[in-house]
Design a protein around this nucleic acid. Sequence first.
RNA 1: GCGCCUGUAGCUCAGAUGGACAGAGCAUCGGAUUUCUAAUCCGAUGGCCGGGGGUUCGAAUCCCUCCAGGCGCGCCA
Length: 595
Amino acid sequence: MCLSLTRMTDSSYFLSRCREELVSLLAAQGVNVNPGEVRDVEGDIDADLAVPLFRAAKERSESPQALAERLAGSLRLEGTRFASATALKGYLNLSFDKARFAQEVIADFSRGPDRYGRSDAGAGHTILIDYSSPNIAKPFSVGHLRSTILGQALHNILSFLGYRVIGDNHLGDWGTQFGKLLCAFTRWGSEDELERNPTTHLLSLYVRFHEEAKTSADLELEARDWFRRLETGDEKARSLWQRFVKFSTAEFGRIYDLLGVRFDSIRGESAYENRLSGVISRALERGVARREKPAAAMVTGGDEVGSDETVVIIPLDDVGIETPLILQKSDGTSLYATREIATAEYRIERWRPEKMLYVVGKEQELYFRQFSAALAKLGIPVPCVHVTFGLVRLPEGRMSTREGRVVFLEDVISEAIRRAEAVVQGRDLSPEEKARISRIVGIGAIRYADLSQSRIKEVVFDWNRMLALDGDSAPYLQYAYTRTRSILRKSEVQSPESKIPSPSSFALPEEFALLKSIARFPDAIVAAAETYEPHRIAGRIYRLARDFSAFYDKAPVLKAETPALRDARLYLVEMTGRVLATGLALLGIEVTDRM
RNA sequence: GCGCCUGUAGCUCAGAUGGACAGAGCAUCGGAUUUCUAAUCCGAUGGCCGGGGGUUCGAAUCCCUCCAGGCGCGCCA
């Protein structure tokens, strides 16, 4: 299921070259380890890489410490990237040759500052990502945010690694919910309101529908009938539905612009309508699906369905899933799954992806297992990966559109920008600059709050947490970036890239910590792509920003002791700034020169 | 009832393929600004990694079991 990129990017960047070199050094001594067993050293131990020798020692029935000591004595390090090897508690610890380390990291970077971290591992491969995919009849809530920004980040990351990525926003513009809206609008709707505040109006109709449906049992049936009319091409249903869609998509477009989210394709579920009957009939012909009497009387409305009515299902118990997938309801209309299968067929025909990622909440896990199994049975060979994420809840419980218990994304964005404005207030900047910076910082904070944590965990929405402007937050990283820009601006160096420093200039631990953070960046991108976890990148660049802040505090750049040191530090600042900007860009977060 | 996910410091979270003393942010307390923007830095306090068993030279990480929370379980999307 995971992308396997590690081997393909090996030897591209300093750390992977080191691991390989170390593995071959050990192999020359008759000790076999995998590059994956080589560990980065964190903490107080004075070394850069470490090899645990417990497994290798066991194979040759030797004590790990004895083996480590023997290797530390016998490894021939002249001419390698390592300056020394020591044995400690069964580990073989290696320290970099510092000058060579600095030289190679700088060389990796100077090959192409904007390309640092990139690879061509995905060249020639196409991946489709389904993300955001909101129901357009409802306002954009913070619940939709996760899919939107996770998907966008994965799009950025995979593209950076050379893949051809198709981001497809699969708008929810079809289905029973539209039956409900049509029903509600014809009963209680207002033309004026629809034009003025489409999603707000549709939301209140949706809420009212569910209110009234509690006491009026016929309403659900009426809604079902409206959907049936829509799907069978009824004039009135069609034209009304079209207007719902038109007004709503306009509002969504505004939010996407504000968030800086882009898609390669935006298509509604309705676009696949003409393929639905084909999906159902082919499934029946192949013997994958079958018609069946409804298992039970319809719950909603209390009416018994006619005895001649049938549903079309794909049984999945033979592949370990008890619940079958339903393709057609007893009234002949389609379901989400039917439309998804049609969509998958279309996507494969059009883009020929080798894999399709669905960035969809965890609550749909069973559904996706059914969906994948159904595709396999239908002979569709492209694997689907459900990139799940935890639900966003409110402290008082689950968000519910129909009960009006939601936080709207627009309100969150406004509040984020407002808080950023408060900080930037005292700065000596034009009002336009302040507005621009507040937007970049506020939206960055929102995105980072989500992308800095593993996606599987559920989130209890909290204003302060989502809009943090200090500590482990986007503004912290953006601020570190502005400091790099500020130094470079004042240095009056036209192009620091032209002044590649002598690597032996570096001496401070803060300088090496910074270099090491930069050296680790490429691996983080690969890890993020392999696990579909952008927070791997967030963690890496946060650490880089911390290392930079410590460096900033300790090591004067413009007033460095010697011109050579000044140049060397300027280059370090340049690298840091670029890596921060690249990493943030992968997360969809902008930077600014001042803030 | 069955299935999936989660449980790490007061709060919010990192801890890839099991590895050296479990790391951050917030909060609390104490320091740092004639020096490149203090949305900053340095330090302190704070953890039987939900409980209990097991596998292993080694477990927050793997297995079993229990507890707590979330989500799901045929005509919603």
